[in-house]
């Protein structure tokens, strides 16, 4: 991976992270809203190879752990996104039609966001954190899934173009 790719990718991730922290978190979105950065990271991982997906997940998770709004232990999101980033890129790489179909990638990323949150929740339970009532957890997960399904199609063309520009590839998304 060239220095240009690494620096451009890092800059892009930091910009999206700042947008998430400075603007998206300020919006009072119903049901807790969505994480633009999480969706972006998983979309990026879905377009990448499994190794890059895992690395992307690691960097993204580390940045999310740095956020003040993250209540859990530091490294929790890092671990979750390493696994989910690897998983989504592995699934995307294995099924070419999944990777190239906007509808299936929307489905894949939305489910990955849900999986990441569930995994984070389980990890929190293992670490002894209080996660709230069952009803509130289920409601939050379902609303998060709906928001992801709504945001992914909007973010996907932008992420795909940025990915193609940085990696000199031509995506058909």
């Amino acid at each position: 991976m060239s220095t240009r790719k690494i620096s451009l990718t890092a800059a892009l991730f930091i910009i999206i992270y700042i947008v998430q922290e400075a603007f998206v978190t300020q919006l009072q979105i119903a049901g807790g809203g969505f994480s633009l950065f999480l969706i972006f990271a998983l979309l990026w991982a879905a377009l990448s190879s499994p190794n890059v997906g895992a690395l992307t997940g690691f960097v993204a998770g580390f940045l999310i752990d740095l956020s003040q709004s993250t209540a859990g232990a530091f490294g929790q999101w890092t671990l979750v996104l390493v696994l989910v980033g690897f998983g989504i890129s592995y699934l995307g790489l294995g099924y070419e039609n999944v990777r190239l179909n906007p509808f299936t990638i929307t489905f894949l990323v939305s489910i990955s966001v849900l999986a990441a949150r569930v995994l984070y929740l389980l990890l929190s339970l293992l670490l002894g954190s209080n996660v709230g009532s069952f009803t509130s957890v289920i409601t939050s997960l379902l609303i998060g899934l709906l928001w992801s399904a709504a945001v992914v199609p909007i973010a996907m063309p932008v992420v795909a173009r940025a990915f193609d520009f940085i990696n000199d590839t031509r995506s058909r998304l």
Binding site: A54, D65, L66, A73, F74, G75, T78, L79, V82, L83
Partner: peptide, 28 residues
């Protein structure tokens, strides 16, 4: 190997945070 390293690093970070290492909170 990369995946294992990343997972171990994550677990290492979690352990450090749970043990109250001030570097982690300082970074945040």
């Amino acid at each position: 190997l990369l995946l294992i390293i990343l997972i171990i690093t994550s677990l290492f970070l979690i352990t450090l945070d749970l043990r109250g290492v001030s570097v982690i909170s300082g970074v945040r």
